[in-house]
């Protein structure tokens, strides 16, 4: 079957997309010496902690879309669903370093862990101090007793928001790391998938979800979830997804939270709002106060149909950092 996509060459989709991002948004993206590293134009900023992230492509606007003012300074870009190289992470760290060290805030995947580890070692040899926070907000990917195995998903955006705001506010490296770590520790996420997705170079669906079914707890690359159940109305879907998040016990009546609802690529925005209304209703019933909400395509999985729900519990510090202005392709505020 012919791949119905707007591409030139299935093997060059990442290269071609980067060209488009840079051409369309010179206000956010400058090229670097590394073709798989983009940076915010006014970076490095002397004395400010640099914020770096990176990950596989296919999740747009993540990861590159969060490069911007008061958020991520430089990004390493991988193949579709595949970690960037250690060299790309290293060059992003070099691009972001303004002499105050670099916070590398990324998601918990085997490839990213290895490539970041190698890059941190090489950065140290080059005289750059890099500290890391590894996001593990996906409650469906492992039980709480094995939290170190959990994947990082859309909660990473809140980690970048908090870390970026902390760096902009003049926090030192340890302070930025502590704030980003607190953000992700206070964050829980879960996804539901309704359809599969196609990596262009592979050419056929990555996995299968039967029509009329939904996979609860699906990962950002189609990793299997907790179970596959018949498709539910938005109202029940919201309850199904909130249940494993709320049973973790960190969101109680009276808690103030940020809610982030993201489509997985093929979900109409309208439906994300239908879904959000149900989440909001249930949280009100439970006495959980939504301080701020984000609804849209923030962290996608190519053309997968589905939705992810992320919640972060706030304290005074996190509230201030979340409310700080930000200007990036994926998030504009203030």
């Amino acid at each position: 079957m012919k791949l119905n996509r707007i591409i030139n060459d299935p093997n060059l989709v990442v290269e071609d997309a980067i060209e488009g991002y840079v051409a369309a948004h010179p206000e956010f993206f400058s090229k670097t010496n590394h073709e798989r590293v983009l940076k915010y134009p006014s970076i490095p900023q002397q004395g400010k902690v640099g914020i770096v992230t990176g990950g596989g492509s296919g999740h747009e606007p993540a990861f590159l879309g969060y490069v911007g003012k008061n958020m991520v300074d430089a990004v390493a870009i991988g193949e579709i669903f595949s970690s960037p190289t250690a060299g790309a992470f290293l060059d992003a760290m070099k691009a972001a370093d303004g002499g105050a060290g670099v916070a590398c805030l990324y998601g918990n995947y085997a490839g990213d862990n290895m490539n970041v580890k190698m890059a941190v070692k090489k950065a140290a040899a080059a005289g750059i101090t890099v500290k890391t926070v590894v996001a593990n907000d996906d409650v469906a990917s492992a039980p709480i007793t094995e939290k170190e195995k959990r994947r990082g998903v859309a909660g990473e955006i809140l980690m970048w928001k908090v870390g970026g705001a902390a760096a902009a506010a003049g926090y030192d490296l340890d302070g930025v790391i502590a704030a980003a770590q607190k953000a992700i520790d206070n964050c829980r996420s879960i996804g539901v998938g309704l359809s599969s997705c196609i990596i262009p170079a592979v050419g056929h669906p990555n996995f299968n979800i039967d029509n009329g079914m939904m996979e609860v707890g699906i990962g950002h690359h189609g990793e299997p979830g907790i179970n596959v159940v018949p498709l539910q109305p938005a109202k029940e879907m919201a309850a199904t997804m909130l249940e494993p998040i709320l049973t973790e016990g960190i969101f109680e009546a009276g808690s103030e939270v940020v809610v982030l609802v993201s489509g997985l690529g093929a979900t109409p925005t309208m439906e994300l709002y239908i879904y959000y209304a149900e989440v909001d209703r249930i949280l009100k019933e439970k006495g959980v106060k939504v301080h701020r909400s984000y609804v849209g395509n923030y962290f996608t999985s190519l053309e997968m149909m589905g939705v992810t729900l992320s919640m972060m519990k706030l304290d005074d510090e996190l509230k201030k950092l979340v409310d700080a202005p930000v200007h990036s392709l994926g998030m504009v505020q203030g």
């Binding site: 991988g78 193949e79 190289t85 490839g111």
Partner: peptide
């Protein structure tokens, strides 16, 4: 491999 493909297989 390290510079060309990344992912897990590049470093491994």
């Amino acid at each position: 491999l390290m510079e060309g493909i990344g992912g897990s297989m590049g470093p491994l």
